[in-house]
């Protein structure tokens, strides 16, 4: 991508992925899914058309939250769960910046659960990327709010008795305008999703399945492994029928309010019976249905699940400020000081 060089308008500088690699040594465990997320994040940056100095990555605490250190942009590694609050402050203070929130399943949905709800419902124009590995990695292997029931970890030796949250359903419940899912081992898909998240005006929520090869290895493997992926995952495309399978022979049909997997050509099922994916439907019912579809009963949906338009919080805030100036005039401090009843005390 081409951007204006900081030294002058006629000096054109082409940024590449390398320009977004910081000088810090990456310290995730070898084999961690976070490497791929970092690489795709760096890859997508040059395509955004934004000068590097206007990009900010803000994170909380956890393995994923180390990511800003490795991005050669502005970055803020904050405190556990609070990245959405700092990002909200920065974006509303400086709306011209591109602000990204990097978080994990524990950071976003446990300690930061409250903030994730509110940043999404306010529709602050941010990109929120949730690395979901269904485990606490940095603290060395305790169950997380997305770990499945009965998960055996150091803190749940007899199996977790916590019912897990579904991140996309939480986002939709919080009135999200943009919800997508991707996976660490599909770089092209992830680049696409990160680009779409950036394009969307409003709070964009992207869940990325991320393998923790130390404490939760293979958590997603039974449907993400290359040889089974086509049959066990549903790659959503706007305006296209929800068809999956190596032979593209299976699809999702609505039976009343319940989705069902059907085989094309069997029992008279044709492509016309298959649900067409529409990201832009205001009503979140289908999106919610997709957010709950899970293997093995269903293929696991990935892609943009919902992308609808609603005014952003930062735009509304700026509009109010502009309107206040328009209707009341710019503020004058000396006038403000003298408002109301005043009285003069004369020199003796």
């Amino acid at each position: 991508m081409v951007t204006i060089d900081r030294n002058g308008s006629d000096n054109i500088q082409v940024l590449s992925r390398k320009d977004f690699v910081s000088d810090q040594e990456v310290r995730w465990c070898p084999g961690c899914g976070d490497y791929s997320i970092l690489a795709q994040t760096q890859r997508v940056m040059p395509d955004l058309g934004i000068p590097r100095e206007n990009i900010v990555f803000i994170s909380g605490i956890g393995c994923s939250s180390r990511l800003p250190y490795y991005m050669n942009t502005y970055g803020f590694h904050s405190i556990h769960g609070r990245a959405p609050t700092i990002a909200s402050g920065l974006k509303t203070a400086r709306p011209e910046l591109s602000v990204w929130v990097i978080t994990g399943d524990g950071d976003a949905l446990s300690i930061g659960g409250n903030h994730i709800l509110h940043v999404i419902r306010r529709n602050v124009d941010l990109q929120i990327v949730l690395h979901n590995n269904e485990i606490y990695g940095l603290t060395k292997g305790q169950y997380s709010p997305t770990s499945p029931l009965s998960k055996v970890t150091y803190s749940s030796p007899m199996g977790s008795i916590d019912w897990p949250l579904r991140p996309l359903a939480v986002a939709l419940g919080a009135e999200a305008t943009f919800v997508a899912r991707s996976l660490d081992i599909d770089p092209h898909h992830m680049v696409d999703m990160l680009g779409r998240a950036h394009e969307h005006r409003g709070a964009s929520f992207v869940e990325i399945y991320q393998n923790c090869n130390i404490y939760n290895d293979g958590a997603f493997e039974e449907f993400t492994a290359k040889d089974v992926r086509a049959d066990r995952m549903l790659f959503l495309k706007h305006g296209e029928p929800m068809i999956f399978g190596k032979a593209e022979d299976k699809g999702i049909r609505l039976n009343g309010l319940k989705p069902e997997v059907v085989e094309l050509g069997k029992d008279g099922v044709t492509v016309k019976d298959i649900l067409i994916h529409d990201e832009t439907i205001e009503d979140p019912t289908i999106a919610f249905m997709l957010s709950r579809m899970d293997y093995p009963e269903y293929p696991v949906p990935v892609g943009v699940i919902r992308a609808v338009q609603r005014p952003t919080y930062n735009d509304l805030m700026d509009q109010q400020l502009a309107k206040a100036v328009e209707t009341q005039g710019e503020g004058n401090l000396d006038e403000l000081f003298r408002q109301g009843d005043t009285w003069q005390v004369e020199e003796e």
């Binding site: 803020f76 904050s78 959405p84 609050t85 909200s88 920065l90 203070a93 400086r94």
Partner: peptide, 14 residues
């Protein structure tokens, strides 16, 4: 907590 978080974000932004 969010209240001070936004304030820190704003200060980070100048």
């Amino acid at each position: 907590i969010a209240a001070i978080g936004t304030a820190i974000g704003a200060s980070f932004g100048g």
